Simulated scan of single mutants.
Amino acid sequence: MDTPNVKTAAHEAGNSAIVERGARLGYAVSGLLHLLIAYIALKVAWTSGGGSADQSGALATLASSSGGPFILWVTVVGFALLAVWQLTEAITGAHGAELGDRVKALGKLVAYAALTWTALKFATGSSTSSGDQTKDFTTSLMGHTGGRLLVGALGVGVAAVGGYHIYKGWKAKFLEDLTEHPGQWAVRAGRAGYVAKGVALIVVGGLFVVAAVRKAPSEATGLDGGLRTLREAPAGTILLTLVAVGLAAFGVYCGARARYARV
């Protein structure tokens, strides 16, 4: 199959109504998960419990709610079609022909594919822990030659993504992802949301670096571990509360993105 045919097929798939509506659905369910993660993070900040403040904790909350199984399957479909759309973007470069845009699309493809798999596990009654998956992945990576260096580099990369999120939120660069201005309420929510996600990702990346330096894969605990690390910092309750509010704001912004996203 030659490259022009592959690009043509990808372009047609990316422009199909099913993929477009599915991608918008994916942004909507992403917003719902961020709202649930924010809720759990607030419980972690102010009580001794709270559950897992990450995607698996949010999905577990959905699974135990009324109508949860149906919503979980909707989540699977939304994330799967978002992954498909990112694949078409990586192939065609429809909204950015530069290599960097395609690399970002590939990164998002991997992220949404992982979310699809996690949501599918919950939808089929086989729950999984994002934190355990992160630890297992780090342990496996460290078992290879140069594994510690790779884990450290991964941590730096995650922290760099977090820094970019802060920049994107502060400068409101996320508006470039939309077809039109979503309103000031969405801009404020997007700014707060991207900054909060950036802070959380920087902490998560830092934990990977610590795991590499200490030769301790258990230190790489994902988003839940990152948020709990914030809780243990000086004025941690306030810090985690601010991040939780920001994550909730990002969930609200995702609602606007579901409508105005450049798909």
Rank of each mutant, 00 (worst) to 15 (best):
K215M: 07
G236Q: 00
G193Q: 05
L201G: 02
L154K: 06
F79R: 06
D101H: 15
Y260C: 13
C254I: 01
I166W: 05
A160P: 05
L178M: 14
T118Q: 14
G183H: 02
A248E: 05
R21K: 12
K7F: 08
I18E: 12
H165R: 02
Y164I: 15
G50C: 07
R257L: 12
A261E: 13
L150R: 09
R102W: 00
G146W: 07
R214A: 15
V209G: 06
R231H: 05
L109Y: 05
A189D: 09
V252Q: 09
T229V: 03
I166Y: 05
A38H: 07
T237C: 05
A235F: 13
E219I: 00
G100Q: 14
L201R: 02
A60F: 10
G206V: 02
W170N: 10
A192C: 03
T128N: 03
T61H: 07
K121D: 12
L72F: 01
A17G: 07
G143V: 01
D132S: 12
A38R: 07
L82G: 13
G198T: 05
G68A: 11
V203E: 12
A159F: 01
I166P: 04
A258Y: 01
G251L: 01
Y167Q: 15
G67W: 00
Q55S: 11
V77W: 03
T241N: 04
R214D: 14
G78F: 01
A119P: 07
A13H: 10
F122Y: 13
A159P: 01
I71P: 01
V77L: 13
G163A: 09
T75M: 05
S52T: 13
V151H: 02
V204I: 15
L242Q: 06
G198W: 00
A256F: 14
I202S: 09
V161C: 13
I40D: 04
V195Y: 11
A123V: 06
G143N: 07
I71D: 02
L42I: 14
T179D: 12
S56R: 08
A97M: 06
A186W: 01
E20Y: 05
L106K: 00
D132F: 00
T134W: 00
A235R: 11
A249T: 00
G193T: 02
